[in-house]
Simulated scan of single mutants.
Amino acid sequence: MASSADLAGRTAIAMVAGETSGDLLAGRLLSGLRPQLPDALMHGIGGPNMAQHGFVSDFPMEKLSVRGLFEVLAHYREIKGIQIALRDQLLAERPAVFIGVDAPDFNLGLEAQLKSAGIPTMHFIGPSIWAWRGGRIKKIARAVSHMLVIFPFEEELYRQAGIPATYVGHPLAQVIPMEPDQAAARVALDLPVHAPVVALLPGSRMSELKYNAVAFVAAAKLLLQRDSSLQFVAPMAGEAQHRYFNELIAQAGLQDVQIKVIDGQSHRALAAADAVMVASGTASLEVALFKKPMVIAYKMMRASWYVLRHMGYQPWIGLPNILAQEFLVPELLQDAATPQALADALWQQLQDGAHRDRLQRRFTEMHHTLLRDTAGESARAVLELIAQSPRRA
């Protein structure tokens, strides 16, 4: 492990991304940073998008991909062990900067310890203090030297709390085209060109799938009873997810030609779709950037839901609705996310042409607002933080 964090030698950049969406976002940051530091050692915890830029993962990213209060508790000892091992490794190495990408429950505690030891810390994607758990702001101030934020209103919120922050736009706004080519996506996925297509995105983690996918498949079956010409496409994040979803399709008495399960290619599936059923999270913002009507749904362990439902102080949980500050699209959560309710809401999204046109306009405006040179601006912020550090003596 490299011991020098001097830019004149081999710089060490440490990073942690805890799930698929974080790996994608971190990959964008590294695409701007790697050309500036071609010989730097970049390591920590990450996935395949980060690896494309020479990042080395010291621990499997999948170990951190657990959501829900009680679900995390079940894996607490293993996750805590990874955090301690990485902390000790980084305290010995003393990298030029540590960048935590999302995963606040893991990263903020680690960042606080590194910062107190004099290692500059950056957090990419601010915890949603504007949505819930606002008390986190004091913890963030102790842990983070500089915030990189992806929504325009966040920059001032953090600065008011005394935390330096830079709005860098949302990386997905650069990745996703302003005008997706639906016909080309359908040809690439071997989907019918003229039939109505619905994309199913019940979540990338197995823990999410086990709570959301049953209702998604049952809703698809109800929709097929209304219109047998409907074609469903379901992108899965991994082999285990693919296998599990296929089992649900078979149990529902459906055929794989009615619900086409594909490996990855979620963006291509969204481009191909007329409407989307999606689990709450970053994926709902991706749907908005593809300008598609959607129904946002989410289920979790009942005990986790009981706690979390009292922590929010906004009426929305879906990112498109939060950014719009209104219920642009339906949200069906926990017990409300029944197959019948999901089917009814999705059917309305398919049938209401005026609503689709309004969403197209609003989502296009949202896309322009979030569009920045994220890779370049975030890389500049990282280099400035390194340059400002007194440790470079």
Rank of each mutant, 00 (worst) to 15 (best):
W316F: 15
S304F: 09
A275G: 14
A283D: 03
Q258I: 01
A252W: 10
Y244W: 11
L222V: 12
K291L: 09
M294D: 07
L319H: 08
Q251P: 08
V261H: 03
H310L: 13
V217T: 12
A297K: 05
G312T: 10
F216S: 01
I262K: 04
I296S: 06
K291D: 09
A269D: 04
A219G: 07
Q225N: 14
I262T: 15
K291I: 00
R268V: 07
A252V: 12
G238H: 06
A273E: 06
L323Y: 08
E239D: 09
Q251M: 04
Q251L: 06
A252L: 05
D227S: 08
Y244P: 00
L223T: 01
Q265G: 02
D227G: 01
A275I: 05
N321E: 15
I296K: 01
S229H: 14
L319S: 06
L308C: 08
L285T: 02
R226T: 11
E247F: 00
A215Q: 14
D263L: 09
D263N: 09
G318S: 15
G281K: 06
I317T: 03
Y313I: 00
H242G: 04
L254M: 13
V307C: 11
M300A: 15
D227V: 06
P320S: 10
E239N: 07
G318A: 15
L319N: 03
